[in-house]
Measured scan of single mutants.
Amino acid sequence: MSGNGNAAATAEENSPKMRVIRVGTRKSQLARIQTDSVVATLKASYPGLQFEIIAMSTTGDKILDTALSKIGEKSLFTKELEHALEKNEVDLVVHSLKDLPTVLPPGFTIGAICKRENPHDAVVFHPKFVGKTLETLPEKSVVGTSSLRRAAQLQRKFPHLEFRSIRGNLNTRLRKLDEQQEFSAIILATAGLQRMGWHNRVGQILHPEECMYAVGQGALGVEVRAKDQDILDLVGVLHDPETLLRCIAERAFLRHLEGGCSVPVAVHTAMKDGQLYLTGGVWSLDGSDSIQETMQATIHVPAQHEDGPEDDPQLVGITARNIPRGPQLAAQNLGISLANLLLSKGAKNILDVARQLNDAH
C-alpha cells in the first residue's frame, strides 16, 4: 500500500501541473516587456503551470559599433537563445518575429505568432524639431536608422535628408537623439515604442507609400524545439490566425527572394473581405531603383483552434497545428507568387547589386 502511495506522490510531482516552463529572452527592456506579455497570456491559459524567465545577451546586443547589415552573420539576435533551447536550458524563446530568419536551424520551429501590433515605422524627432515631419525637416538634416530597408525607401522619398546608421537598443538610440546634436530624427518601429509606453515620442507614423515595413514587423514569434510536442501544444494558444497568415505570406515572399538583413526588402499586408493583399518591394541601397507589386488571394481566416493538420510540417519556419492547413498554404503560395513576379521584373539584379555594395563598404 505504502509503495503505491509513493508512486502516486511521484506521479503528482512529475505531472504537468508541477512543471516549471523556462522562457528565454534577450536582456533589453523591450525584450523583457514583450516576454512578460507572452508569459502573462500563458499564465492565464495555464494557471497550474509556473513560468521562469531567463534573460541573456546576444551577438546583436554586444556589437554596437557596426551596422547590422555589415556584421555579416545571420541570427544576430537569436543564436545564443537557440543555443540555450538546444541544450534544454529553456523550453521556449520569445523573439520579435522580424529577427527570426525565414529558414531556422534544424530542430527549431516557430510554435506561435502572437497578435500583431502596429507594424509601421515611426519617426521620433529631436526636441528642437518636435512638430515637424520628415518632409518639413531642414535641408541636409541627419536621420538615424539601423535599417537598409528604411534608408533606401526614405532616401527616395525625401532626397533633402541624409540617413546615417544608429545602433543600440531603444533606450540607447533615444538617448543619442536627445543628448547629442548629430541626429534631427530617428526611425523606429511603432510597436516597440508603444510597448515601452513611449507613445508621446511618436512624431509621425510612416504610411506604406512612404515606407513599407519589415517582414514580420510588429509581431512576436515564440520559438521552440520542433519535436517538443508538449510545448508546441502549450504555445499553440498564442497563435493569432490573421497575423499568422499575413506573416506566412510575408516570410514566403522574403524567403523566395532570398532577402535578408543586408538587402532592402519591404512588405505591406492587409486582410479585407476574405482577401489577403500582399505588397512587396525591393530597392537599391540608395533607393534610386525599385520594383513594387501587389497581389491578392482569397483566404478564409479560420477561428482559433479549428482542428489543424496533425502532421505539422513547417511552413517558412512556422508550425501551427491548430490552424487549418489550406489557408496557410494559400498564404505561402501568395508570397511565392509575388516573389516570382518581382524576380521576373529584375528584382534579383537589384538585390545582387545591393548585396555587393553593402559587402564592399
Rank of each mutant, 00 (worst) to 15 (best):
S37P: 06
V39C: 11
A40G: 12
T41M: 14
L42C: 08
A44C: 05
A44D: 09
S45D: 12
S45H: 08
S45L: 08
Y46I: 08
F51E: 04
E52L: 04
I54E: 14
I54L: 09
A55K: 07
M56P: 05
M56G: 06
M56Y: 02
S57V: 14
S57I: 03
S57R: 11
T58H: 00
T58Y: 00
T58A: 09
T59A: 10
T59V: 08
D61E: 10
D61P: 03
I63S: 10
I63F: 12
I63Q: 06
D65R: 12
D65E: 15
T66N: 10
T66D: 05
T66H: 08
A67W: 01
L68K: 13
K70N: 15
I71T: 09
I71M: 14
G72L: 07
E73P: 08
K74D: 05
S75F: 00
L76M: 13
F77I: 04
T78S: 08
T78A: 07
E80F: 02
E80Q: 10
E80L: 06
L81M: 08
L81H: 11
E82M: 03
E82N: 10
E82I: 02
H83Q: 13
A84F: 11
L85Y: 01
L85C: 11
N88L: 12
V90P: 01
D91E: 12
D91Q: 06
D91A: 08
L92G: 06
L92H: 05
L92D: 00
V93E: 00
V94C: 14
H95T: 04
K98I: 05
K98M: 01
D99N: 04
D99A: 04
L100M: 10
T102Y: 15
T102M: 08
V103C: 15
P105V: 06
P105E: 06
P106E: 14
P106H: 13
G107D: 12
G107V: 08
F108P: 15
T109V: 15
T109F: 04
G111D: 03
A112F: 00
A112G: 07
A112I: 00
I113R: 00
I113C: 11
K115R: 11
K115F: 11
E117R: 07
P119N: 05
P119T: 12
H120T: 15
A122L: 05
A122K: 03
V123N: 00
V123T: 14
V123Y: 02
V123P: 06
F125R: 03
H126F: 07
H126M: 08
K128E: 15
F129Y: 12
V130R: 14
L134V: 12
T136D: 12
L137T: 04
L137A: 06
P138G: 08
E139F: 13
E139K: 14
K140T: 09
S141E: 09
S141P: 04
V143I: 13
V143C: 14
V143D: 04
T145M: 07
S146P: 04
S147N: 00
S147R: 04
L148C: 09
R149H: 06
A151K: 08
Q153P: 11
L154E: 02
L154R: 04
L154F: 07
L154Y: 06
Q155K: 13
P159G: 09
P159A: 12
P159Q: 10
P159T: 09
P159W: 05
E162T: 03
E162A: 07
F163A: 12
F163R: 09
R164Y: 07
R164P: 07
S165M: 06
S165K: 05
I166V: 06
G168N: 04
G168A: 02
G168F: 03
N169A: 06
N169D: 06
L170E: 07
N171V: 06
N171S: 12
N171A: 10
T172N: 12
T172F: 10
T172Y: 09
L174V: 10
R175S: 10
K176W: 10
L177R: 04
L177K: 01
E179W: 10
Q180C: 15
Q181K: 10
Q181F: 11
Q181Y: 14
Q181M: 10
S184R: 15
I186E: 15
I186R: 02
I187V: 09
I187P: 02
L188D: 02
L188M: 09
L188S: 14
A189I: 01
A189V: 02
A189E: 03
T190M: 03
A191S: 09
A191E: 01
G192Q: 00
R195G: 04
M196L: 12
W198M: 15
H199N: 14
H199A: 10
N200K: 14
N200Q: 00
R201H: 02
R201M: 01
R201C: 07
V202Q: 06
V202W: 05
G203V: 14
Q204L: 14
H207K: 13
P208C: 04
P208H: 12
P208G: 13
E209C: 13
E209V: 03
E209N: 02
E210V: 11
E210Y: 04
C211W: 04
M212K: 03
M212A: 03
A214P: 09
A214D: 02
A214C: 10
V215N: 00
V215L: 06
G216T: 02
G216E: 00
Q217R: 03
Q217I: 03
G218Y: 02
G218D: 02
A219K: 00
L220H: 03
L220W: 05
V222G: 02
E223M: 00
V224G: 05
V224W: 03
V224M: 15
R225Y: 09
A226M: 15
A226K: 15
K227S: 09
D228R: 13
D228K: 03
D228V: 04
Q229L: 09
Q229A: 07
D230Q: 15
I231H: 01
I231M: 12
D233N: 14
D233M: 07
L234Q: 09
L234C: 11
L234H: 08
V235F: 01
L238W: 03
L238D: 12
H239C: 10
H239L: 05
P241S: 14
P241H: 09
P241C: 14
P241M: 15
P241W: 14
E242R: 09
E242I: 03
E242G: 04
L244R: 04
L245Q: 09
L245I: 12
R246P: 05
C247R: 03
C247I: 00
I248E: 01
A249D: 03
A249I: 02
E250L: 02
E250I: 01
R251P: 06
R251D: 02
A252L: 03
F253P: 04
R255S: 11
E258L: 03
G259P: 01
C261A: 01
V263A: 15
V263S: 09
V263H: 04
P264L: 01
V267C: 14
H268P: 04
H268I: 03
T269V: 00
T269A: 09
M271S: 11
M271K: 08
K272Q: 06
D273R: 14
D273A: 04
G274H: 05
G274T: 00
Q275S: 01
L276S: 03
L276C: 11
L276P: 03
Y277D: 06
Y277F: 14
Y277N: 09
T279V: 08
T279H: 05
G280C: 01
G281A: 12
G281I: 01
V282S: 05
W283R: 07
W283V: 00
W283G: 13
S284P: 00
L285V: 10
L285T: 09
D286I: 15
D286E: 13
G287K: 01
S288N: 08
S288Y: 06
D289F: 13
S290D: 06
I291M: 13
Q292F: 09
T294I: 13
Q296C: 02
Q296L: 13
A297T: 12
T298C: 08
I299N: 06
H300D: 15
H300F: 14
H300E: 11
V301K: 01
P302M: 13
A303E: 10
A303M: 03
Q304P: 05
E306L: 13
D307T: 06
G308M: 04
P309A: 10
D311K: 02
D312L: 06
Q314Y: 02
Q314I: 07
V316Y: 02
V316N: 02
G317I: 09
G317F: 01
T319A: 09
T319R: 02
A320Y: 00
N322E: 13
I323A: 04
R325L: 14
R325C: 05
P327R: 03
L329C: 00
A330L: 15
A331V: 05
A331L: 03
Q332G: 08
Q332R: 12
L334H: 01
G335F: 10
I336V: 05
S337I: 08
S337E: 06
L338M: 12
L343M: 15
L343W: 15
L343Y: 01
S344L: 02
S344A: 01
K345R: 07
A347D: 07
K348R: 15
K348L: 14
L351D: 14
D352T: 07
A354I: 00
R355P: 14
L357F: 14
